[in-house]
Simulated scan of single mutants.
Amino acid sequence: MADLQGIRVLMLATDGFENSELFEPRQALLDAGATVTLASIKTDPIRGVKNDSEPADSITPDLTLADVDVDDYEALVLPGGVGNPDKLRMEERAVEIVEDFVDDEKLVAAICHAPWLLVEADVVDGRRVTSWPSVRTDLENAGADVVDEEVVVDGNLITSRNPGDIPAFNRAIIEALAKVGADAD
């Protein structure tokens, strides 16, 4: 198991996140020793969903989008769900955060519907990615090379399709962050 001590990961989410796509990567990162910070529109508790409809678990964000300093993190993880990225892509600060992580060549991982944020941030042109099927046309229209694979790693960008891909998604994130940690030593 990779040791991610000292690695700081930011997650962005709001109401409507797919429960497993937030909690499972978060727990895998914590188990590997990373520090994980959750940012949202407000610091009021946010509620997840299962299968995009059934109410699920709540979690209280650590800080607001306005309080995020990209320099404080080595990676950004974006959980899906339909409502979550749809709301976040309308938040100028959320889009700026995604742009800044990509511009700084930091790791950005997005699963399911979360690549909508990558489209909104205009960071997929020429990149190889995957997503939930209904997001693929948006990705193609933004210039991405879209494939149907459980996890796609294109440089600092990691994407997956759905909750069934979470194990591969988590492995790819942890492997990439282990290299970041090794490079910092």
Rank of each mutant, 00 (worst) to 15 (best):
D145L: 01
V98T: 00
L117P: 00
H113Y: 06
F101Q: 00
D44K: 04
L63R: 04
A110D: 04
D31Q: 10
K106S: 03
L63C: 09
E150P: 15
D72F: 10
E96W: 10
T43F: 12
P45R: 00
E150S: 14
D69E: 15
D86E: 04
L65C: 04
V119P: 09
V153W: 09
L38H: 09
E105M: 04
M90P: 01
E150G: 13
E105V: 03
L38M: 09
L78N: 01
Q27F: 14
D122L: 12
R128W: 08
V124S: 10
A32Y: 12
N141Q: 06
K87P: 07
G83W: 14
E149K: 15
E105H: 04
D62S: 07
K87M: 12
V153L: 11
P85E: 10
P55V: 07
E96F: 13
A110W: 03
P85Q: 02
D71T: 11
R128Q: 08
A66K: 12
S160R: 07
A121I: 02
D52E: 15
D145Y: 00
K42C: 15
G126V: 09
A66R: 09
V49T: 13
N141E: 06
V36N: 00
R89H: 05
E92M: 02
P55E: 13
P133M: 02
V119E: 05
D125F: 06
A121C: 06
A32S: 15
A39L: 09
E92F: 00
K50D: 14
G83F: 15
D72Y: 11
A56W: 10
E92K: 05
D125M: 08
A34S: 13
A144Q: 01
L30G: 15
I97V: 01
L65G: 05
G33A: 15
V124A: 11
P61M: 06
D31T: 08
D67H: 14
V98Q: 03
K50A: 14
A110Y: 02
L30N: 15
E74R: 11
R128Y: 05
E105T: 09
W132T: 07
L139C: 13
D138G: 14
D67G: 12
K106Y: 09
E91T: 01
D122T: 12
R128P: 03
L38R: 12
D71K: 00
L63Y: 06
L78G: 00
T64E: 01
L157S: 08
A34D: 14
V151G: 03
V151A: 09
S134V: 01
W132D: 13
A39Q: 06
T60E: 10
I97F: 01
N156V: 14
P115L: 02
E149D: 11
A66H: 12
R136Y: 06
E96K: 02
A94H: 01
N84M: 00
G80A: 10
I111D: 03
I111R: 06
A114W: 05
Y73M: 10
F101S: 04
V95R: 04
W132Y: 13
L118Y: 01
V77T: 08
